[in-house]
Simulated assay, not measured.
Amino acid sequence: MTKAATPTEPAPPAASSTAPLSTAPLSTAPSRTMPATGWRSLLTTEGRAARSFRFRVGAAFAVIIALHLIGLGLLSVGVMSGAAGAVSVGVAAVAYFRGLVHSYDFDHVSMIDNSTRKFVAEGRNPASVGLAFSAGHSTVVILSGILVVAGAGIVRTALDESSGVARVLGIIGLSVSGLYLVLVAIANLATFLQALRLKRALAVDPGLEIPPDALTPRGPAARVMTAPLKRIRHPRHVYVIGFLFSLGFDTSSQIGLLILTAGAALAGAPAISMLCLPFLFAAAMTLGDTLNGLMMLRMYAAAHEDPKRKINYNLLVTGVGIVSGLIVGAIAAATLLHDQGGVDLGVIVSVAEANTEYAGFLLAALFAVIGIAAWLLWRRARPAVR
């Protein structure tokens, strides 16, 4: 039991004096592929993907808080400048409320929901889909607000429906929103069909082993359906969609904001304080859109956590998202045909003039009810699963 200690591994050889110095690794030098650390990592796609989900959510809300601080700071400057600045306090509250309501427009909710569904189906976990879309929209809002304050006439021209600028911008906005939503709905249809095939397979064999990526679309048909949006892979791409989408100035909230800004100028409010209106509008809109995006991310991610047990839930939320996207796309197409193409067919006119004022709230509420009901059912069934 008391054997002499015998080394099991030879001692490392001494460094040879003839070995080239270039072969010695420099441990203090960073690798070329080493991602940036800290907040700088958010400037690159790889860096953002490497950060924790909590960190990325915190970064998204940091942007929202910054917009709030800028808006309130500009408002404070106007208030401290005298009585004329007080005019901005009332309209600032209205602008903020309009931005929050605007984030729940039918097209906003549908755009964010369907984009989130697409990313989750591709195995991604983006925390900033809602923020990215809203940031693109906010860019146009803030720039147009600056132009109004500066007295630029191009904004008035863009708001004049009979002008060529308004027609071009309207075509761009409606075409981008309608085409994108139809294409992303078709891409999500591939996920829906995959889930439907899985449900049928489970009906035949309830004990079927389900792999983690069971809901990933497969097959030639899925590749065809997802091909048009193959390059839309990150939230920054959704930013571009949001920017182009808002060029049409076709929403009452966006038009109302510009009218509020122009009215504040006529009331004698300082120019610097008037800039608080687009910033507060953007702050409220990004808050609503980001919360919607995170809610939908949680709902769609839950469907992938246990696809076998949550197959009906996945079919329901995916199906509702697809239908909403197709409806918004149909409305955009009908509006283009009616307003720009002069088509006066009864069906086209009816679809183009459909009232969707409260549809976004109803859609968001429907998803919330589905999510809460599913959570309660899963919680009740948890002991039985054990």
Rank of each mutant, 00 (worst) to 15 (best):
M274G: 09
M274S: 07
L275D: 00
C276N: 11
C276W: 03
L277H: 01
L277F: 01
P278R: 00
F279L: 02
L280C: 12
L280W: 15
L280V: 14
A282G: 01
A282N: 04
A283K: 07
A283C: 08
A284H: 11
A284M: 12
M285E: 06
M285N: 09
M285G: 02
G288R: 10
L291D: 08
N292A: 14
M295I: 14
M296I: 11
R298K: 14
M299Y: 05
M299Q: 08
M299F: 10
M299R: 09
Y300I: 02
Y300Q: 03
Y300W: 13
Y300P: 00
Y300N: 01
A301P: 05
A301Q: 11
A302H: 14
A303E: 06
H304P: 01
H304K: 11
H304R: 08
E305G: 00
E305F: 11
E305W: 07
D306R: 14
P307N: 05
K308H: 04
K308R: 12
R309H: 08
R309Y: 01
R309G: 03
K310N: 13
K310R: 15
I311Q: 05
I311L: 05
I311K: 03
N312D: 15
N312S: 11
N312V: 13
N312I: 10
Y313Q: 03
L315M: 10
L315W: 04
L316E: 07
L316P: 07
L316H: 13
V317F: 08
G319L: 01
V320W: 01
V320M: 11
V320D: 02
G321L: 04
G321E: 00
V323S: 12
S324L: 08
S324T: 06
S324F: 09
L326D: 03
L326Y: 06
L326R: 02
G329E: 04
G329M: 03
A332G: 09
A332V: 08
A333W: 09
A334L: 03
A334G: 10
A334F: 04
T335I: 02
T335Y: 05
L337W: 08
L337P: 05
H338N: 14
D339C: 01
Q340D: 02
V343M: 08
D344C: 05
L345N: 14
V347R: 02
V347G: 05
V349G: 01
V349A: 10
V349M: 09
S350A: 15
S350N: 10
S350H: 11
V351S: 01
E353N: 14
A354W: 15
A354I: 13
N355S: 07
T356E: 04
T356K: 04
E357C: 05
E357R: 15
Y358E: 07
A359K: 05
G360E: 12
F361G: 06
F361W: 15
L362C: 07
L363W: 13
L363S: 08
L363C: 09
A364S: 11
A364K: 10
A364M: 10
A365G: 09
A365L: 13
L366W: 00
L366V: 11
L366C: 10
A368C: 02
A368K: 13
V369C: 02
I370G: 04
G371I: 14
I372D: 00
I372R: 12
I372P: 00
A373D: 10
A374W: 08
A374R: 14
L376H: 15
L376M: 15
L376W: 13
L377H: 09
L377P: 01
W378I: 00
R379S: 12
R380L: 12
R380T: 12
R382P: 05
